[in-house]
Amino acid sequence: MATVAAVIASTHHPFYYRASTATGKDRPPFADEWVSKIETFRETLTRAEPDVLVMVGSDHFHQLWLDNMPQFLVGKAPKFDANWYNEEREFGLPRMTLDGEEELAAHILRSGLDADFDLAFSNELRIDHSITCPIITLRPEADLPIVPIYTNIFAPPLPQPKRFVQLGKAIREMVEAWPEDKRVAIVGTGHLSLELGGPRQFGEHGPDPEFDRKAVEWIATGDIEGCLSEVSLESLHQPGNATHGFMDFMLMMGVAGEGQKADHVDSLDLFHTMEAYFTWYPEGAPA
């Protein structure tokens, strides 16, 4: 059976690539500290020695569009091209091609459907920065096969927060039931408080530092119950109009499990949004 080698939850900041590669006067003052935190975070995945990455993210109106919008979608293909013209334009992100792990994708689709998750699928998916940002930060070699799983945190009506948690729990069980002797890391990215295209965008900090503080605490301590008691589709409008991306963190809390304290917790207060990084080792921290 497969082993869940690591569970990793992270923000996906599209400016990291440009900030970390900039030099001289183009290099922002916060870049060195950011790079240092990312390199420490990267080591938590490297030490887990994964063979395969399940990558949870959310398409930002790149391939998935309002004429045919899935709530949860699994990519099943031998290859995934990645990053889009407008991400190259705005963030300077490079084009990439990643290998797919089709057998695990097929296993997740079959067992997900049998567990009452009506998962959509795609056999030709061009993935975006919600999945390539963690490749850049956590596995820049981009040498591992992936199974991308997209969630809809973006185009209402959205699934309820509890459904994200339930799907996370199911993904954990499905990966553990995969009859292959492989080490799988489950990596998901979302947001803390965030405002895009509204009056509170691009401030000195994230739009709601108090929400961010609570969110980091919920995630770090695995407090799913506490989180679900305070977070609803309605409440997520308050911290910032793009804060529904926090539900991908809730999905990852479901993967990690109720009450499971993260083995690595870090954050970085940037302009516009707070970065946050979490790693759990279900089988104990590697030596």
Partner: peptide, 30 residues
């Protein structure tokens, strides 16, 4: 959708401004 508007308007107009100047003015107008 605010993400779509912001992304397109940054593509059109960020080039006429200093770093983050356009994004901040965009928020201030609201």
């Amino acid at each position: 959708h605010p993400f779509l508007t912001l992304t397109l308007f940054i593509a059109c107009f960020e080039r006429d401004h200093g770093p983050l100047e356009y994004q901040k003015a965009y928020g201030k107008a609201m």
